[in-house]
Structure formats: C-alpha cells, structure tokens
Amino acid sequence: EELRLAPGAPPSHPAHTPLYVTLAEELPKETDGTLTGNILGPEVANVGNMKGALQSGVVQVGNLLPLYFPGDLPNSALMGDLAFLGRDPQVMGAAMTEYVVTCEDCQEEFKKLGAVFAGAGSSDVYVLLTTKPVRTPDDIKGMRLRSGGSPFARWAEYIGASPVNVPVNDTFESMSQGVIDGTMGSAADLTSYRLIDLAKYIIDLPLGTYHATVNFAVNTDAWKAMSPEQRRGFVRAANKANIAFTQTWGYERSNVAREEAEKAGLEVIKPDQALFDVTESFVEDDLKAVVGIAESQYGITDAEAKIARFRELVEKWTKIIDEVGHEPEAIAAATQKEVWDKVDYESYGM
C-alpha cells in the first residue's frame, strides 16, 4: 500500500526534509515493506488547505497545523497559546505529543475531523528580527512587529509595540516596504523567507516556541485500513521523523541561519535585563489570560486543568531530556517508550 503523504511545504522546508522524507524512508523498514509513501508537493496540498485534502482522502497523511483550523481543533490549538513556556524545542515537541495522545477532548476532536494524531514537533525559540536596534523596553515601544500568532501579538501589546497581522508570505514584502519594523519568528525565517536580505538585527530575547503542530495527521479511513501491526510500525517511523524534524527546525536550521546572518553582516543584540524581566512578567500574567481566551474564544471547558497538565508535561520532559541528552536517537527512544509504546493500536484513533 502506497500512502499519499503531504508535508504541505517545499523541499527546502524542514517539514519536507527531514520530516516527510524520513517517514517515507522508515515506513517500509518498520512495516516489513507493506507500507510505502509517495510525497506530494505543495501544488497538491499546502498548510492552508490541508484539512480539506485530508478529509477527502486526496492526502492520506498530512502536516496539519491546528492554528489554521482552531474551530476544528480547539484543544490542540490552545497549546499554541502557551508558546512562551517553550525554552527547549525537543522538550516542547515531546510534551505536545504526549499531551495530545493522552487528552481525551483532543482525541475526540481528531475523530470528528476524520484524522488520527501521530506526533508533533517544535520550532526553535523565537526571537525578534528587526530593521532597527532594540536594547531597552523603550526601543521597542511603537515598533510595528509582525506576529505569527496570538500569544506573540499579546506579548507585543503588553510590551507597547504594535503587532501587525501580515500573512507569512507577505513578510518579506512588508519588511522591505517598511510597513513592519520586524517580525517575531524563528531565526530560520532569515533564510527560509529570505529576511536576511532585509533585517539588520537579531534580538536575542527568547519569545517561546511554535509547537502547536500535528506533523502527521492520518486520514481515518487510511488508518482503519491498516492492521494494528502496521499502525505500530507507522508510528515508530513517524516518531523517528518527528524527532529528526525538531532537531532540524529547532536547532540546526536556526544555527545555520545565524551563521549566514553574521556573514551577511547582521548584528546579534543581547538586550538589557529589563526586557527579559518584562517578558518574564508577561508570561505569568498571560497564563491567566489564556484561560479566559480558551473559554470565550475556543469554547474549551476545564481550561485551567488542561493548562496545568501541559505545564506538568513540559516539566516532565525537561527532566527526561536533561537525563538522556540531546542525541536524537536517545530522545526518539524516550518518546517511543514513554508515549507510543503505551498506546493500544487496536483502539487508538478508531
């Protein structure tokens, strides 16, 4: 059986290589050659239309971002609002994965959407990429910053900047026109959206991670057509791919981008302690706000307990990864043991 796989991104993006490439390589190995994959390009399915592509079966395994479909996946999308808890990408990827697998409401949502969750990943810790220098809280006041999601917008407002809503593909143009003074994003955006041509400063202020991801959403019919053994094999392959993805997106990409940025003459600024402090206080204040958002906008009940559960998992994985270290194989073994080996493949996602 050859599955139609859709990273929703071009080959240069980590969602394609290594995420989907690893899955396509590992799939036959983990399933005795009974499952293989064919990777489709973004001209067939992109992150914007992935839900429809998955539901209709055009795509059988797709990269589904909950923040694009918060009405369908409110419980998974909510974890995106906790971006500022992110300090280590592998921790966040593993915590998100365990959270969704063990959260009943999340599983219910996936069932309704017609897909099965098979793992998450995380970006690097976001920073500010700007055309003007930022050292003090005063420097940032009134700056127009592109926000990649609502927690970043709330942070910008908290700190006195004005968040601007710019579609990701318009970032380059908006920055080159001067409509925005900067963007809150991954350092890898410097190369992947070519902001390296425009930005002059990397402001090393940790703004949290983008971890509300569903790297592999499997079409429910395709999942049901697999035997329990094939499902187990699929998840083993997916798990390796997820870790490889976070390794690339969370660390390697941004490191390479930073090196290139330095070559291109961008300046890395370590801002004053005051900016760190105000960001710290934002994180605590914001957790209370998130509960309100969850209930009023996402229609989620029991948000406080859910947020507490996620924080618990972040702490749990911080400890685990402290112990096993940052070798991808070791982390993959840990997530396999702690999360995926505990799943019952007769009933999961059915």
Binding site: G48, N49, G52, A53, S56, G57, V58, P167, D170
Partner: peptide
C-alpha cells in the same frame, strides 16, 4: 481525472474546497 485515479470522494473533495481556498486570498 481525480475520480479515475483516486476515487469519487477525493474528486468531490477537490471540488468542495478549491474554489474557496483559491479566492480567499489577501494577495
């Protein structure tokens, strides 16, 4: 063509979502 290759449901899916996805664009 999609009906022939992948079956009826995917073909319907392409009809159902492409018009909106194409047009609902800022650019």
């Amino acid at each position: 063509g999609i009906w022939l290759m992948l079956g009826f449901t995917p073909a319907v899916g392409i009809l159902a979502t492409t018009p909106y996805d194409f047009v609902a664009s800022w650019t």
